[in-house]
Amino acid sequence: MAKVKGEIVVNTERCKGCELCVPVCKEKTIAMSGLLNSKGYHYATSANEDCNGCTNCAIVCPDGAITVYRVKLEAA
């Protein structure tokens, strides 16, 4: 099991659906939602639980729509 657990929060109204965050996610956590925001963009969303909080998606996001959280998990 991963030693860290991350989570992303996407500001869906700020996201423009450019998809730059999708290929930089090594854990394949980010996918584009089937839903639209009020501007008509398919926004990015978290699609699985594998996020490790690497912040790659957030630093390539031109609109700064992603906030990243990370916790260290203690050994079980």
Partner: peptide
Amino acid sequence: ENEVYHRT
């Protein structure tokens, strides 16, 4: 407290 990246 777990936040590692946010928009400036």
